[in-house]
């Protein structure tokens, strides 16, 4: 298995607070990996470091979608997205004054290139590109079962649909690695089951790897090929769901003394 994302000794300090401490994570092609850990363990900080929202204090983040290692730490978020890392957010961050379709169309931004002049003249290539964007966006919308909301403003969508729309928007950037920050938070059991299938389907159809942060253990255990556990910014365990379930350090971090 070839790894497409390698994180080496990633450290992130906020002043005197060390949120991440020498974290090593590697993700393989077409793998669904999960990042779990108690609240405040640094999971979202890890995401923010990878996607360029924070600049890591130390360590390397390497991507190799085509076998060539490329260092991406310190790059701006938009450039990292362009390189093929797309993410969703823990608390929904959709573009609220736009419709569902337009949200996905924004996601197509980094794979298209019409400029100001093209927009004003509306020439052939711009028209073709615009058409392509619309078709692609609608296709993704359908893939995620959101086509009934095409022209709805996103604020009027139900919560579950908004969560899925965020995934759809991230998919529109054509990533090789999709980072999902708590995709199942706030969903009911049935919606969570649907999400399970959806994530598997996304991996198959788009041929991408997925890294997810999740608290819903049932989802994590059934879905992931590999689980990374962090606590207080340190990695305390890694392995298949079965290994993690029996890892004493993980059990201690999650359940504390009750187990003993």
């Amino acid at each position: 298995m070839k790894s497409i994302l390698k994180v080496k000794n990633l450290t992130m300090n906020f002043g005197g607070l060390r949120a991440l401490h020498n974290l090593n994570i590697s993700i393989n092609k077409k793998e669904i990996a999960a990042l779990i850990g108690p609240n405040g363990a640094g999971k979202t900080t890890f995401f923010n470091c990878i996607t360029g929202i924070y600049k890591p204090s130390n360590g390397d983040i390497l991507i190799s979608p085509k076998g060539n290692n490329e260092k991406i730490n310190g790059l701006k978020p938009n450039i990292i997205t362009k390189k093929g890392l797309a993410r969703t957010f823990q608390n929904i961050r959709l573009f609220t004054s736009m419709t569902a379709l337009e949200n996905i169309m924004v996601g197509c931004h980094c794979v298209t290139k019409a400029g100001v002049i093209g927009a004003i003249l509306n020439n052939k290539s711009t028209k073709a590109e615009e058409r392509l964007i619309i078709e692609k966006s609608y296709f993704i919308l359908k893939e995620l079962g959101l086509e009934i909301y095409v022209n709805e403003l996103v604020t009027s969508l139900p919560y579950g649909a908004q969560k899925r729309l965020e995934i759809a928007r991230a998919l529109a950037t054509e990533p090789f690695l999709l980072l999902l920050d708590e995709p199942a938070a706030g969903l009911n059991p049935q919606e969570t089951n649907e999400l399970d299938e959806l994530i598997l389907k996304i991996r198959e159809q788009n041929d991408i790897s997925i890294l997810l942060i999740e608290h819903d253990m049932k989802l994590v255990m059934s879905l992931s090929d590999n689980i990374h556990v962090v606590d207080y910014g340190k990695k305390i365990g890694e392995g298949t769901p079965k290994e993690i379930r029996n890892n004493p350090a993980v059990i201690k971090a999650y359940l504390g003394e009750e187990v003993v």
Binding site: N78, F89, R93, V106, H109, V111, V116, A119, A170, T173
Partner: peptide, 27 residues
């Protein structure tokens, strides 16, 4: 023309949410 173009959508995205907008690959 501008407001319904790729550029116009980027503007509105910027207005709605700066962080998400960057995460969509918009400079």
């Amino acid at each position: 023309r501008l407001q319904n173009s790729r550029i116009g959508r980027a503007w509105i995205a910027l207005k709605d949410d700066e962080i998400a907008c960057q995460a969509m690959g918009i400079n």
